[in-house]
């Protein structure tokens, strides 16, 4: 199950709608092993495509080093689907390399009501999980949140 603050959900949806029809992408970092998404980091989609995304490699190195220095990991890896439902595509599964991350998909076509869904992708296997949206974190964690 993914437990996540409503502000982070809203920020992901806003970014996805803003980038539509190009696919949006990013991560939400959090303390390693905590399973708690805290810092939303929008990533540049180097592919600038309606059907594909790839993090800009230079930005990825910078962000990954920063997480390492802060003892964080990508708790959520998110991207949008601009013309299909929020279910991992073959390409998504092929490229999923973080078994501990929640893979969140935001559909930006109004047909799908922008209803996000979350998945674990382990050894090319997709498991959908429940998303529990909360309106507050513990106060000290809420202070660290970037949405």
């Amino acid at each position: 199950m993914l437990t996540i603050h409503s502000k982070l959900i809203n920020a992901m949806i806003a970014q996805a709608l803003d980038d539509h029809p190009i696919e949006t992408c990013g991560i939400i970092a959090g303390p390693a092993g905590s399973n708690l998404p805290l810092r939303l980091i929008p990533m540049r989609n180097m592919a600038k495509s309606e059907t594909f995304f790839q993090f800009d490699p230079q930005q990825q190195l910078h962000v990954w080093k920063e997480m390492d220095a802060r003892g964080e990991e990508p708790i959520v890896i998110y991207h949008s689907h601009t013309d299909s439902q929020a279910y991992p595509s073959h390409t998504d599964v092929e490229h999923a390399t973080e078994p501990q991350s929640h893979y969140v998909i935001i559909p930006t076509k109004s047909l799908y009501n922008h209803e996000i869904r979350s998945f674990r992708i382990i050894d090319q296997m997709v498991i959908e999980e429940r998303v529990r949206i909360v309106h507050q974190y513990q106060p000290e964690l809420e202070l660290q949140m970037v949405a």
């Binding site: 696919e23 992408c25 991560i27 990533m43 592919a47 059907t51 594909f52 995304f53 790839q54 993090f55 490699p57 990825q60 190195l61 990954w64 080093k65 890896i77 991207h79 991992p88 595509s89 073959h90 390409t91 998504d92 490229h95 999923a96 390399t97 973080e98």
Partner: peptide, 10 residues
């Protein structure tokens, strides 16, 4: 030398 799999998808 840092190795990072690209984060990508469709």
């Amino acid at each position: 030398l840092t190795i990072l799999p690209a984060v990508a998808g469709g």
